[in-house]
Amino acid sequence: MLKAENIFYSYDDGTKALKGIDFQISQGEIVALVGKNGAGKSTLFLNFNGILRPDEGNIFVDGDMLKYDKKSLIKCRQKLGIVFQNPDDQIFAPTVEEDVAFGPLNLKLSQDETQKRVSEALKRVGMSGFEKKAPHNLSGGQKKRVAIAGILAMKPEIMILDEPTSGLDPVGVRKIIKLLKELNNEGMTILISTHDVDLVVEYADKVYVIVDGEIIGKGTPNEIFNNMEIIKKANLRLPLIAELFKKLEENGKITGLNNNYPLTVKEGYEKITEILK
């Protein structure tokens, strides 16, 4: 569905942000891209929808190679919606509803259809009733949700979210994750960048680990988080549950995990009930 082949990108000041990225995401997946600050996550995302043009390498959307003329860029951006890391970069209109309507109207949808989508999108992110508010009067978390609604209203095939949960309260995080899972069930492909390893294991089908502009690991959460080498290299840590089981194992309280730690609360719960039996 979305594929990147051997992407190199450097910024004008000479920073080599991406060094030969290979990346693939298939229809219906939820993929997480994890990596420390400055690893190149945001840069990669901007390469995906043609805002930045790679120095080398190609992007494929639905099998078509991305060309950088106006028409194919528009086509690409209809399919790929990006929610920016900082909502202030994205939200520009004087009212919430006008901002959310911006995308759909650019897709040349009618006013009625747009209105439907705006109210639906706002409802889904839990921001109904804020239609007429000025975005700069919203809190950080609320802005984030409006930013998500702005992309949601465009109904892209792939939704790319750059750290959607940073700055949200715990309930807000849960809601966003729940929303993303719902969207995924409805057939939307989702790509998320994040540092939050505890969450990644909850929702991701596949994890890519990026370090200094290179992908150093990809696989299921289980494959990634049982590979301590990757975790160390990427400046990550294990999910807390796995951390707990690792400690128990090191102190000889549990045996037989074979480097296969439970990652989520659910898995941990099952493991413990199994042991207690």
Partner: peptide, 24 residues
């Protein structure tokens, strides 16, 4: 950055007008 964000949402050089017909 704003330009990037506008482009990402298919901005084509003209900000469209949102005029919902039904006022709820």
């Amino acid at each position: 950055k704003l330009q990037c964000a506008l482009d990402s949402r298919c901005y084509d050089g003209e900000i469209p007008i949102y005029k919902p017909s039904k006022v709820k």
